[in-house]
Design a protein around this nucleic acid. Structure first.
Ligand code: ZN
Ligand code: ZN
Ligand code: ZN
Ligand code: ZN
Lengths: 143, 143
DNA sequence: ATCAATAATGAAAATGAATTGCAATTTCAT
DNA sequence: ATGAAATTGCAATTCATTTTCATTATTGAT
């Protein structure tokens, strides 16, 4: 990832094949991971990378702004790659864990209005809709 | 609280003056508390109530649907009394911790539309705007 | 009032994810 | 190649949450 290289210089980091592997894998995957999920996934593809290293790589990406960190109510942090100014919110299936991303300009605008009304200077927000996804609803019906 | 008494019966609970005190205090306070905050607050008004008891009372209220539980990104659960069908969302000041509640019907409607589009059956949602509140912005300017 | 059954309580221990300390290893500019 | 500095693995620590368990309190029945 070119942008990670940029940050690497900026923060005086040294390169490491392990971290590179983690970063590449994560950025390419383009989906959400807990530290443990990413650790387990990476373990399948390359031996000898510890949990700590995965953890620190994700933290680093989050600090660099290349990864977003969020907790969907279960006290476990989840990370996802941030392409570049691609904001989105989440639909989370309580049954199967599926995470769907969406973006709604009108909602964003209305949020802005609300913040303005209270004199708030908003730097971030999160909108999460919890429920049951279409597939899980179907499964349930068939039973 | 009448509704708590109802649930007490339903769940085969016995009454206890300590728990009653906690529940009353919490429901009347009408604001957000972490377990520790409520514990400390209650300690000022009545001796001999342990952290465990406060913790369990809050959990119970949450199970009964009389308290809402949420985590505002700092990995600490916060509880707030739920009057009855009073949904609202939050503005959270990252500097002073102030929590402001708001409700916006248009946003709620748009959320509903989004869920529908993806075939999601939504049971809950959370919308949190993080930033700096009006007061903190003023303080900062004066410095 | 007494008794048994069961819930509530407090204090300590257990949990579980996040985070850190540290010695060993690797990177990299010189 | 050398040394300063970063990276890594593993164990240890942190910190809120949750559970355990011995003790106490509540409730209904006798
Ligand atoms: Zn699902
Ligand atoms: Zn996402
Ligand atoms: Zn503030
Ligand atoms: Zn609230």
């Amino acid at each position: 990832m070119k942008s990670f290289a940029r940050h690497k210089t900026k923060y005086g980091l040294k390169s490491s094949s392990k971290r590179t592997f983690i970063v590449d894998f994560f950025m390419k995957a383009g989906r959400h991971f807990t530290v443990e999920e990413l650790y387990n996934e990476i373990k399948k593809h390359r031996k000898g990378i510890s949990y700590s290293t995965v953890y620190r790589a994700l933290k680093l990406l989050a600090d660099c702004g290349l990864a977003g960190e969020s907790m969907f109510g279960d006290s476990v942090s989840r990370y996802e790659p941030i392409s570049r100014s691609d904001h989105h919110d989440h639909l989370i299936c309580s049954r199967c864990g599926r995470i769907i991303e969406f973006e709604n300009g009108k909602i964003e605008q209305l949020q802005h209005n609300v913040a303005e009304k209270y004199g708030f200077s908003v730097s971030a927000h999160r909108l999460e809709l919890y429920g049951v996804c279409r597939e899980c609803q179907r499964k349930r019906r068939r039973k």
